[in-house]
């Protein structure tokens, strides 16, 4: 499969990338790891005339954990996320989720930024970012702005990222010490998108849940922030009734496509199963 022809650009700074994007216009695309874009180009579902490769933009790389604030450059690869001990201790759900994405070769090039900015409902990190209430730092010709993950996704491959803007970094307030976390993903095989998946973060105090975050992957046109599921957990002891109420609230908002991953009813059911398992796993780890 041979993609359409394009001119290749390799800017050294983010400003240079943004001005290239502005001057080359709408037939230009930025490429990070390329593991979503290149397959689309090989199928000629994407035919950019200009490809702006961000690989040498140093300011888009790096992981910083300072004073409870985590900043991750958009070009950080999944393998780098997995390999960061700093992230694993400040925000372990990121490693857990990254290990469930694609396979080792793809994780060595695929980036966190590409995964969250692409807008593919099958990508795993968007729901994790919604559970973490992360913010995306977007840079464009008019400067920098932040959009929270919970307001970023508008539809399949449609996000708040404006034309001419580039995702520069992801900012996350580190979850409280002692929080519980889990990313539970059901997939048919390694490398597959989720049949259903759930990201859960919990904070407990004396056996009572004082804070809960729940978000869902690949059971809608966008990642889904399950606010009603969270409400079902907060104030409870995470007993069976609360877990089932949260699972039911998640099922209520799931609208999965009917595809090779199963009929709609099955995927809705599985959404509840993933939520319940993620709550149980997060509860075991909290403390």
């Amino acid at each position: 499969m041979i993609p359409g022809a394009f001119d290749y650009h390799r800017p050294r700074t983010l400003d240079e990338a943004i001005s290239l994007l502005a001057s080359l216009g709408e037939e230009s695309r930025v490429v990070a790891g390329g593991h979503s874009l290149i397959p689309m180009m090989k199928l000629r579902m994407a035919v950019p005339e200009h490809l702006i490769d961000l690989r040498e933009v140093a300011e888009l790389r790096g992981i910083a954990v300072e004073g409870g604030q985590i900043t991750i450059g958009a070009m950080t690869t999944q393998q780098e996320v997995i390999g960061s001990e700093e992230l694993a201790s400040a925000c372990p759900i990121l490693r857990e989720a990254a290990l469930q994405i694609a396979d080792p070769q793809i994780r060595s090039l695929g980036t966190l930024g590409g995964n969250v900015a692409n807008g593919d409902p099958g990508n795993d990190m968007p729901a994790v970012m919604q559970a973490l209430d992360a913010a995306f730092v977007l840079r464009g010709p008019e400067g920098e702005r932040e959009v929270v993950a919970r307001a970023f996704y508008e539809g399949p491959f449609t996000t708040a990222l404006g034309e001419g803007e580039v995702l520069a970094a992801i900012r996350i307030a580190a979850p409280a010490a002692g929080h519980g976390w889990a990313y539970e993903k059901q997939k048919r095989k390694i490398g597959d998108y989720a049949t259903a998946a759930a990201a859960v973060l919990l904070e407990l105090e004396g056996g009572t849940c004082r804070k809960a975050s729940v978000a869902l992957t690949n059971v809608g046109d966008t990642p889904l922030h399950a606010a009603d599921a969270e409400a079902a957990l907060v104030g409870s002891s995470l007993d069976a009734a609360a877990v089932e109420a949260a699972a039911a609230a998640a099922r209520a908002i799931a609208e999965p496509a009917e595809d090779g991953r199963g009929p709609r009813a099955f995927r809705v059911h599985l959404t509840g199963v993933m939520v319940a398992r993620a709550i149980e796993a997060a509860k075991r780890r909290a403390g």
Binding site: Y8, R10, V31, G34, H35, I38, P39, L51, D53, R55, Q79, P104, Q105, I106, S108, L109
Partner: peptide, 19 residues
């Protein structure tokens, strides 16, 4: 199609020579 690129395993069917 796996090759080693700058010390990482990659799939060379999903990488442009330009990259």
């Amino acid at each position: 199609c796996t090759v080693d690129l700058d010390g990482k395993s990659v799939k060379s069917c999903t990488l442009f020579v330009a990259q």
